[in-house]
């Protein structure tokens, strides 16, 4: 990502970003124990709807993919499918230390240690496990990044797809998501069209 893209935004984009940050819908992929922290975050105690953040049901509708807890080989495959079904701009939020380094399952044969080798992670929420305050704080920093136009990790998936694909194939072999990311990147103009 060049510095130019980060700093030079038109006035329209600035205004748009300040509007778009007010509405973020979240798909929570709860494989681990972290899910238990989400109900208080959503309901009357912490109420994340204050910030315009709502839980949503399907990947098509969501902006944030919140991955709570450890990922096994089996579940990571699904997460990748779901991520590719989401509509850009999209933000992956890794929740808890399991997504960062495997956490307490670091020595298991079946867990994936580091999420960002497979998907572009926008934000990590560290802790085992992060309390609702930490989640809210993390989302607020995501909102700030969107406002400043810095939350662009999702473009990395289009620009450096080979890297992610290589890691994915290394782990799973071939996976078929019925979607060609490289084609998409060219179609939507996220990368230069190669002839």
């Amino acid at each position: 990502m060049s510095d130019k893209e980060l700093t030079q935004r038109s006035a329209w984009e600035t205004v748009l970003a300040s509007l778009k940050k007010r509405s973020l819908w979240m798909l929570h992929y709860c494989t681990g124990c972290g899910a238990v922290e989400l109900p208080p975050t959503m309901t009357s105690r912490f109420d994340m709807e204050r910030f315009g953040i709502m839980p949503m049901v399907t990947p098509r509708q969501a902006d944030i993919l919140l991955i709570t807890g450890y990922l096994s080989v089996k579940t990571l495959k699904r997460v990748i499918l779901i991520y590719e079904q989401m509509q850009a701009p999209k933000y992956v939020v890794g929740f808890g230390s399991c997504t960062i380094n495997g956490g307490m399952y670091w020595n298991s044969y079946a867990t994936m240690k580091s999420l960002d080798r497979y998907l572009p992670v926008e934000l990590y929420l560290a802790g085992c496990m992060p309390r609702p305050e930490a989640i809210i704080s993390g989302f607020n920093s995501l909102i700030d990044r969107i406002d400043r136009g810095e939350a662009n990790s999702w473009k990395d998936y289009y620009e450096n797809y080979e890297f992610y694909r290589k890691n994915q194939e290394h782990t799973f072999g071939d996976i078929e998501t019925h979607r060609s990311i490289a084609d998409d990147a060219q179609y939507y103009g996220f990368v230069e069209v190669t002839k």
């Binding site: 748009l16 778009k20 007010r22 109420d47 204050r50 315009g52 701009p89």
Partner: peptide
Amino acid sequence: RVGPTWIQPLFDVIKLMTK
């Protein structure tokens, strides 16, 4: 709960239309 702002639907629509 506190709830969102009164024009939250507008933000949602703008966000969705500019995906």
